[in-house]
Design a protein around this nucleic acid. Structure first.
Lengths: 194, 194
DNA sequence: GTCTATACATCGATAGAC
DNA sequence: GTCTATCGATGTATAGAC
């Protein structure tokens, strides 16, 4: 239960990461300063360096934390037996997670911090998320790499367009189920034809 | 031919915008400073204020300029008579434009500058681009607002996923024609069914 | 682990001469 | 329109006491 990487809960470093998310939510992922973060935490700015050796290290912890949050949400789902229904429930949760926090979505899925690359340790969490996605897609019959790429691009497009043009709304994201059917039907049609 | 808004060609302000694009291409749209920009232009940093009253005003000029570039590219196309083929040629050019300059794509389509909102004048160019897109979609039979939204999200997803994961490649963007067929076939199938 | 104090760079923007 | 000089704020990061 208490491993080397589970520092997000309870510890001071975890509290700092939480405050960093709060700040990022209001001023953007790249728009908060360590001074403002320290103020939020209730300590002085240089004290942050007792927990993170640089701002990039903090971003790295946030990247890992965000992916861990998403993984927990996905693994907590109770999926229906029907693969198509399961895929819809799964992706609906995925999209909901992405839409509820723009800053988190950007850091995790787009990496808009110049010069920041997640460490291999943090990247492992992102790979776990991707493993879950690919597994649900596979069960639903999306196995070909091209089909996987197209489906993921479709979902990313709904998220991206929604966040860019109407954050908080559902004008684009509400088409997820309909487009999921469209892609699945096409794959099944093609597999029958061969 | 010479209007109040055509300052991108010839004038000093246009030269500055061009240098700003060059810089943005290497250090990101939000990553260049006015000092670096002035160095690129060959003047001193305060001299920039003789042409733009603030950095946001410069971003505004870049936003208008980028949309004008895109509009020129789209209007220069010779489209096939067949609406489906025309849509493919048109969107292929659109995607190519987006992929060839990440910084430009971000500024025009995603607005990643905190606090920057394009002026109504600059936004007019973006609306002209959107008008062209909607017209080509309409001719191809995509008229329902939901269908338009889905199609645009699909294209945005290809662009976004391509740029985020493999800039310079075509792993995702190469599926544009196939997905265009998928969407068009679905719309025609539904219209026959009604 | 937190503090005070500070170094050092860079930023956007302004004043005023030419 | 361009220059020199500079302002005031902010940024990350370090030194050293407690």
């Amino acid at each position: 239960m208490s491993g080397e990487q589970v520092r997000t809960q309870g510890s001071r470093a975890g509290e700092i990461v939480g405050c960093a998310w709060d700040l990022a939510r209001t001023v953007g992922i790249a728009g908060f300063s360590l001074r403002a973060l320290a103020r939020e935490v209730g300590i002085r700015q240089p004290s942050l360096y007792a927990h993170f050796e640089s701002k990039h290290a903090l971003y790295d912890a946030m990247f890992a934390d965000g992916n861990r949050q998403l993984l927990a949400r996905l693994d907590a789902l109770v999926l229906p037996d029907d693969p198509r229904a399961a895929l819809k429930v799964f992706m609906r949760e995925f999209v909901a997670f992405a839409l509820e926090d723009t800053a988190r979505c950007y850091l995790i899925f787009q990496r808009p911090i110049p010069g920041f690359e997640p460490s291999t340790s943090a990247y492992g969490h992102a790979e776990q998320v991707m493993d879950r996605v690919v597994e649900v897609l596979r069960v639903a019959g999306i196995e070909d790499q091209d089909d996987i790429d197209c489906f993921i691009a479709m979902v990313a497009g709904l998220i991206h367009t929604q966040l860019s043009n109407e954050p908080g709304g559902d004008r684009w994201s509400r088409h997820l189920e309909r487009l999921t059917d469209l892609y699945l039907d096409d794959i099944h049609r093609r597999s029958r034809a061969s």
